[in-house]
């Protein structure tokens, strides 16, 4: 790598990650003032773990993320299979567009329309509505990730399995699914992180008793930033980082699941 490329890369990475590094560093700040360094300390992590409402919000977020990512994982995979495998069925173009639209739709619109729907059908707002809302917009992302994998999958693998006497179910569970599993898992993890850090849609569709972690952090920040929020954010970044690394590791390795 040339000196120019190296320094350009360094600057770009600094631009992207400097704010996050500052946040992480200040989460270990002993001072009560966010902007004044008062020495290294983990006291805010202690405060954080005694903060009942914040812990409760984190648990709500985790529950919603797992459930909505599971639903989006299944629906997105099925949608990708339908789009990839059934040729040019009637309405295929429209279906594709409808599937991908929530990805580019402004979140305010998605949130508002979901709110109107939930109110309209009389569904009480809470964890269930959060799960539905997050699954709705994450399904498209899963479909994109799984669809890319399906496109790269040699169709003759499935034909070979059928040729060797395997019925459609054995072909799907023995050949197709193991080969797209990394993409399905990556899609799940993507949906998981999308759900975990969503604030806008959650603000519209959640109700009393279903405050997510981003909602809680945001409402606290409005009253003034304190180092405890830095600590909470650092943990959130760590969680998302681990999940994203896991997802890229899964998509990177080729069909290594037996």
């Amino acid at each position: 790598m040339s000196l120019f490329a190296r320094s350009a890369l360094t600057l770009a990475l600094a631009f992207l990650y400097a704010p996050i590094l500052v946040l992480v560093a200040y989460s270990f700040n002993d001072s009560k003032l966010v902007t004044v360094w008062g020495g290294f300390s983990t006291r805010w992590y202690g405060v954080l773990f005694r903060d009942g409402p914040l812990i409760a919000a984190a648990l709500v977020s985790l529950k919603v993320a797992v459930l909505s990512a599971s639903i989006a994982g299944v629906l997105g995979t099925l949608a990708a299979l339908a789009l990839d495998r059934h040729g040019r069925f009637w309405g295929r173009g429209a279906y594709t567009g409808l599937l991908y639209a929530p990805m580019v739709m402004p979140e305010v619109i998605t949130g508002l329309s979901l709110l109107l729907l939930f109110v309209g059908i009389g569904l009480d707002r809470g964890i269930a509505t959060l799960v539905i809302a997050h699954a709705t917009f994450a399904t498209g992302f899963v479909a994109v990730v799984v669809g890319a994998r399906l496109k790269g999958l040699d169709r003759s693998l499935e034909e070979a399995a059928a040729d060797l006497g395997a019925g459609p179910a054995r072909v799907f569970f023995g050949i197709t699914l193991p080969l797209i599993a990394p993409a399905v898992a990556a899609g799940f993890l993507l949906a998981f992180t999308l759900s975990l850090d969503d604030l806008v849609i959650a603000s519209f569709v959640s109700g009393p008793g279903a405050t997510t972690l981003p909602m809680r952090i945001y409402s606290q920040v409005r009253l003034g930033v304190n180092p405890e929020i830095n600590a909470a954010s650092t943990l959130l970044i760590a969680a998302v980082g681990v999940v994203v690394l896991g997802a890229s590791w899964l998509t990177g390795r080729k069909g290594a699941i037996a």
């Binding site: 040699d154 003759s156 034909e159 070979a160 059928a162 040729d163 395997a166 019925g167 069909g255 290594a256």
Partner: peptide, 21 residues
């Protein structure tokens, strides 16, 4: 007859070996 019921087998141009096995 569907492929999995035919007493005929095929060797594919790409070989189509199952990569995960």
């Amino acid at each position: 007859l569907p492929p999995h019921r035919r007493p005929v087998n095929m060797m594919f141009q790409s070989y189509a070996l199952f990569p995960h096995m």
